[in-house]
């Protein structure tokens, strides 16, 4: 089975991954790794295949070629459900919260996999099911405190402004206590203040809980400040991989972002 991965060791390794939809090749022979405890950024222009990459990692898409090794185990094609049981959580580019539920219920939904009381206990509620519910409520309240969203605990998430919805989505992912957290543009559409808040949360999550984070972001200055290592994709191909300093000095990256005369 999967082995224990220490900080600094490779948690997830992608080798030669290719993904195509019909004739469109979204990802072409990309390979990189994510080490435990780091913040790994995936950047690139629109349509570079960044989100597809995340979808491959958590099992939404199954690549036609290439191998994925997670926690030292070579991974077959899996359902997103299985990825969740193995400790991979994510947020979405366009918020995918449960609109009809309150903030609290949304975050509690992150605890689904950790709750085990069966149907009969749930029917009775009082007793073991409630005790379990309250234990998890306490964990959820820690997350709520951490992200400073106590005041919107009871609000249906559909009614929240965009910035807060993003924060609730992060809270929901954190409630899963994942080993690998995938963030798809956590700061899209935010103002400066909200971006700063979000950056602070991401750094704290990484520092305090030692959570490994893979992040897609368009705001280059944020990415340079936050991440330990960056992989750059363009048109489905990997064009650079390294520390922020290395990547920002790379001629291919500069060309991809600024454009070159053909």
């Amino acid at each position: 089975m999967s082995q224990e991965i220490k900080p600094g060791e490779v948690l997830l390794e992608l080798e030669d991954v290719s993904l195509s939809f019909g004739g469109v090749r979204a990802i072409k022979n990309v390979g990189f790794n994510i080490k435990r405890g780091e913040i790994r950024a995936i950047i690139g222009p629109n349509g570079a295949g960044k989100t597809s990459m995340l979808n491959v990692i958590n099992g939404f898409y199954h690549p036609q070629e290439g191998t994925i090794t997670y926690k030292g185990v070579h991974r077959k094609n899996m359902r997103p459900y299985v990825a969740a049981t193995q400790g991979i959580a994510r947020t979405f580019q366009n918020v995918a919260l449960f609109k009809g539920m309150s903030t609290l219920d949304n975050i509690m939904s992150g605890r689904t996999l950790k709750m085990h009381r069966n149907f009969l206990w749930q029917m009775l509620y009082y007793g073991p099911a409630r005790r379990e519910e309250m234990q998890h409520r306490e964990r959820v309240e820690h997350v709520i405190d951490f992200l400073e969203i106590a005041h919107i605990r009871r609000t249906p998430v559909g009614r929240l402004p965009y910035g807060l919805q993003k924060r609730v989505e992060l809270a929901r992912a954190l409630a899963m206590e994942p080993e690998l957290l995938l963030l798809d543009e956590p700061m899209a559409g935010m103002n400066l203040e909200e971006k700063e808040d979000m950056s602070r949360y991401i750094l704290e999550v990484n520092d305090e809980f030692g959570m490994t984070i893979a992040l897609i972001e368009h705001d280059i200055s944020v990415v340079m400040d936050l991440s330990d290592r960056i992989v750059v994709l363009d048109h489905g191909e990997k064009i650079a991989d390294g520390t922020p300093a290395e990547v920002s000095a790379d001629q291919d990256v500069i060309d991809a972002y600024l454009g070159v005369a053909h």
């Binding site: 958590n58 939404f60 359902r79 997103p80 459900y81 990825a83 969740a84 049981t85 959580a89 994510r90 979405f92 995918a96 919260l97 449960f98 609109k99 009809g100 539920m101 219920d105 509690m108 939904s109 992150g110 605890r111 689904t112 996999l113 709750m115 009381r117 149907f119 749930q122 029917m123 009775l124 509620y125 099911a129 519910e133 929901r172 899963m176």
Partner: peptide
């Protein structure tokens, strides 16, 4: 009994499927 089911894990997983089935699967709902 229905109210108990709804406010617990099972009810939440129903509502998760209702609101966003893709995200629900990602949170570990089959």
């Amino acid at each position: 009994v229905a109210s108990n089911l709804i406010r617990g894990r099972i009810g939440r997983s129903w509502m998760m499927i209702r609101d966003m089935d893709i995200a629900a699967e990602l949170m570990g709902v089959r």
